[in-house]
């Protein structure tokens, strides 16, 4: 399994339980879509899988490793696009990517070629020298995508990666995700776009009030699955 969530609860210091007693298993090589209304617990679950939040009960294993015991080893093998951009506003695009490689421990001689490859793939060459503070939202998102792919992860964790992207960039993202999967990678994708889930995912899970209320192959109508599980419109 790429991700095994067993009876996990994720709570905040205020006492709010964003995820409660949730179990979820994602096979290697799968694209798993996480759906749910705002506040359903998708981002909290994703942060817990990415080791940023500690489960207060139950366990989460990523690529066979427990998130509480081996967070650094897990982080070495995952790429994350969080819901909000976390770019270093003091640096330009190229340096953001280069430092991301350095933080991740990528061999020094490999960093620059990898960065240039992803700058080219995402059409960011013209923006490479610009400070990220001055970039548009869509361009910042592209830099975040480049960061996630840059370290050759085994598992990609994407929290609403296409939010705010124009259709052209969105299809570029889908292309990269499909290619990543065809090379053996696993993807955990949270999205509000049902079309995105239908087109990309092998399976979808619907979260509602911190619990997994449905889980089905993504072949059929994702919207119908969503309505049935939550009783609400997506």
């Amino acid at each position: 399994m790429a991700v095994s969530v067993d009876n996990a609860t994720v709570a905040y210091p205020s006492g709010t339980r964003a995820v409660e007693g949730l179990s979820l298993h994602i096979r290697r090589g799968e694209i798993y879509g996480l759906l749910g209304l705002n506040g359903a617990g998708k981002t909290s679950l994703i942060k817990a899988v990415a080791t940023l939040l500690r489960p207060t009960a139950g366990s989460i294993r990523v690529l066979g490793l427990d998130t509480r015991e081996r967070p650094a080893d897990i982080k070495r093998r995952i790429g994350v696009v969080p819901q909000e951009n976390n770019l270093d506003t003091y640096l330009d695009v190229r340096r953001n990517l280069l430092f991301h490689c350095h933080y991740a421990g990528v061999a020094k001689k490999e960093c620059a070629p990898r960065v240039e490859k992803w700058l080219a793939l995402l059409g960011l060459e013209q923006k490479a020298g610009e400070r990220v503070l001055h970039l548009s939202g869509g361009t910042k998102r592209k830099v975040m995508l480049a960061k996630a792919f840059l370290t050759d992860p085994e598992l990609l964790i994407l929290d609403e990666p296409s939010a705010g992207l124009d259709p052209e960039i969105r299809s570029l993202l889908w292309e990269q995700v499909r290619e990543f999967r065809s090379s053996g990678g696993t993807v955990l994708l949270s999205t509000h776009y049902l079309e995105e889930a239908e087109r990309l995912c092998n399976r979808v899970g619907v979260l509602h009030r911190g619990r997994l209320v449905a889980e089905e192959p993504a072949g059929g109508s994702v919207e119908a699955v969503f309505r049935r599980a939550t009783g609400e419109a997506p």
Partner: peptide
């Protein structure tokens, strides 16, 4: 958050 995602 970016630094917390570094493998250290």
């Amino acid at each position: 958050e970016a630094w917390l995602l570094a493998p250290v």
